[in-house]
């Protein structure tokens, strides 16, 4: 299979910080707002470069959403940043009314998403955010897989006109996608072509999917690995074509089963190409404290679980 080189572990949130700085250099309409999490969101470089375009909102996320929508009316391109739970679940109604229904050009920068936030525990580990944001008409939902892709996705988010939910994480993870590849919103990236099973993955599970594909290769199974970096709008064409080719599907995501990528792809395939499917996700459970690696293993989200799901899907052909 195609080899991917980890050029050195980095956190995806730093990719966001770097992308935000680039977007800010390219377009003076770009603003950054945070609710007392400038450091965690890696907004420091942007704030130093453009102090007049950085707005500290304090621990008041609801107001931050409204302020951002007001700024967007005037043509600004505000990025609002906080932990995933506090910039989705806590402010769902504000995002719904002021950003989605209000059609304002606000970018939601959502860090520390999923269970890999780790030690802080379940109050901070949202596994429901994709479901919430997906449910909003018109919301673009992006979940890049590594530092480079998060940086490039941030630059792309600044350029597209309309609400974007950009999801990334806390831990350092392998960095393996091309450094300056322009991010295409709405494209599912085929990382490895295969014929026996397709593994659709998003975010931190993409690297795990590649590791799983390597393990499967040793067993003579040729897995197609697709990075679904944009969850909405879904690249239905690529999804359907791959499922038709391999006739067995696994969907891996660091998210609850309800409302996640798995249900989304199942819905598309049920309509277009019913296919045996297995799901790798956080089931319907809350997280707990622990290291990211411990939690990924305990909640069944790592490469070993993805490989096992692939074997099951193939057996159901």
């Amino acid at each position: 299979m195609k080899k991917y080189i980890d050029t050195g572990k980095k956190d995806t949130r730093s990719g966001f910080g770097a992308g935000l700085l680039e977007a800010g250099k390219a377009d003076k309409r770009v603003l950054a707002l945070t609710a007392d999490l400038k450091g965690s969101l890696k907004m420091g470089d942007f704030a130093s470069a453009f102090p007049d375009r950085f707005i500290q909102c304090g621990i008041a996320e609801s107001n931050m959403v409204g302020v951002a929508s007001g700024l967007a009316l005037a043509g600004k391109v505000p990025f609002i940043g906080s932990f995933a739970e506090f910039v989705t679940g806590r402010v769902y109604d504000q995002i719904r009314q002021e950003v989605a229904y209000g059609h304002t050009n606000v970018k939601i920068a959502s860090s520390h998403a999923g269970i890999t936030l780790g030690e802080d525990g379940a109050t901070h580990q949202t596994m429901e955010d994709i479901a919430l944001m997906r449910a909003l008409p018109g919301m673009i939902v992006i979940n890049p897989c590594d530092y480079n892709q998060t940086k490039n996705a941030t630059i792309a988010a600044a350029k597209v006109d309309g609400p974007v939910y950009l999801r990334f994480g806390r831990p350092s993870v392998p960095n393996f996608t091309p450094e300056n590849e322009p991010f295409e919103i709405g494209k599912a990236y085929v990382l490895n072509e295969g014929k026996d099973v397709t593994i659709f993955a998003t975010g931190h599970t993409v690297w795990e999917a590649l590791l799983a594909a390597e393990a499967l290769e040793a067993e003579g199974i040729c897995a197609e690995v697709i990075n679904v970096a944009t969850i909405k709008p879904l690249d239905e064409k690529t999804v359907t074509a791959s499922a038709f080719k391999t006739k067995a599907v696994v969907v891996a995501e660091e998210h609850n089963s309800a409302g996640g990528l798995g249900e989304l792809i199942a819905g598309v395939l049920a309509k277009r190409r019913p296919t045996p499917m297995e799901f790798v996700n956080g089931a319907d459970k809350f997280g707990q404290s622990g290291s990211p690696a411990e939690l990924m293993a305990a909640y069944g989200l790592d490469a070993a679980h993805i490989a096992e799901a692939a074997r099951k899907a193939i057996a159901r052909k």
């Binding site: 609801s62 409204g66 302020v67 929508s69 007001g70 009316l73 043509g75 009314q97 002021e98 209000g102």
Partner: peptide
């Protein structure tokens, strides 16, 4: 200028518009 109905939000919107 903006949707309204769910209460308590328009003041924030106005603050943002004024800040712009």
């Amino acid at each position: 200028f903006q949707a309204a109905g769910s209460l308590g939000q328009g003041l924030s919107v106005a603050v943002g518009a004024a800040l712009a």
